[in-house]
Every structure is written in C-alpha cells, then in structure tokens.
Simulated scan of single mutants.
Amino acid sequence: MDKKIIIDQVTEQLKKELALALIAANNAHKAATDDQSVAETQYDTLAIEQSYLAEGQSRRVDEIKYTIKCLQNIPSQALKPKLQINIGSVVQLERDIDKQQWFFLAPVAGGYRCKLAMQIDTITIVVITPESPLGAAMIGKVIDDEVNIKIAEKSITDFITMVI
C-alpha cells in the first residue's frame, strides 16, 4: 500500500478547502473595509462583526496551510511498514474488516477520508491523529493487541488485525 497516495488525496482535499477559504477571507476582508460597513450609530456593529469574520477566515487559511505542510513533511521513514503503530501507520481493526475500512495515523488532518483501489476492492481510509481517542489508544500497539476506547460514556473494545 502506497501511503503517499493517501497523503496526496488528503492534500488535494485540503487544497480545495484552502482555495475556498482564501475566497471567503478576501470577501470578509473587503466587507469589513467597505464604505457600507462604516458605523452610522454607536449600535451599528456591522464593521466589527465583519472584521471578526475576516480574522476567523484568515486563521482558517493559516490552519489549512499548516496542515498541508505537516502532511507533506511526514518523513519517508515514517511511511515504511512497521510492526508498532505510530505516525504513518495504516491500521485495520477487527470490526472494520467487512467494511474494508482502515485508519491512517497522521499528525494532522483528522477526520479526512480517502478511497484506494486495491486488487479486487476499494478500501476507505480515515485519517486519525494521536490526539483523537482512537489514535491515542492505538499508539505503540501491535497486531492482535486490544484497543479500548471511551467515547461519550461508551466503551468500545476491539483488536488490531493489520498494521502497515
């Protein structure tokens, strides 16, 4: 399994989001500095609200750029197959075998998904981070280890069936 394909697919999704976020940030900045946004009374807060929106959109742009950079800078050594789960590992849990779902442990971009065409099947890969409950439970584990996850008062126990 070529893990670079996973990184490339997620990076493409992020680049599309970045393009939209840049447009939103530019529009919000224009709206905040537009003559129509000038306060007419002390209760007119449109310009202030627009500036908060512009700031938030600019932060989102920075976050996406940072995420892309982090993904592209995952060391090639981390992408090599290994026995112990760490950043760069692709992992499958026992309950996900039938669904052909896998998890890619990355430092950023948790929640993004991609699909890979394998010999006879298409598999779904979900990016998780070590900060997520599942990612934290997986770090350092190996095949056949038990993983215990507690999410919203619900405990889930599963077993690691594959690590790439």
Rank of each mutant, 00 (worst) to 15 (best):
A21V: 11
Y66S: 13
Q9Y: 06
Q13K: 14
Q100Y: 12
E63T: 09
T161E: 05
K82N: 09
D2R: 12
M138S: 06
S76A: 13
K69G: 00
E49M: 13
G56C: 08
L79K: 09
K150S: 11
L46Y: 09
I149W: 02
F103C: 01
A24F: 00
L14Y: 03
A106V: 00
A21N: 04
Q42W: 06
S51E: 13
Q92E: 05
A39V: 02
C70N: 11
A117Y: 05
A25I: 04
T122Y: 04
Q50C: 13
I64C: 04
G111H: 09
A31Y: 03
E12P: 00
Q57L: 10
N27F: 00
Q101I: 10
I128A: 02
F103P: 00
D144Y: 09
P107M: 04
K154M: 10
F159D: 04
K150T: 14
I125E: 00
Q50N: 15
D145L: 10
A39T: 05
D44T: 08
S89F: 07
G88D: 06
E12N: 09
K4P: 01
L20Y: 01
R95I: 02
D8R: 12
L79V: 03
A25R: 07
S132H: 01
Y43S: 14
K3L: 05
P130N: 06
A152L: 09
E146L: 11
L22G: 07
M162T: 06
A137M: 08
M118G: 08
G88M: 05
R113G: 00
R60V: 07
K82F: 01
E146W: 01
L53K: 15
R60W: 03
K141C: 08
V108Q: 15
E40F: 08
I85N: 02
K150A: 06
A54Q: 11
A117D: 11
Q36S: 14
V38F: 07
Q42A: 10
K80E: 14
L105H: 07
V90I: 13
M162P: 02
G56L: 13
T33V: 05
L105T: 13
K82Y: 02
G140C: 06
I85K: 01
D2Y: 05
Q92H: 08
M162H: 15
N148T: 13
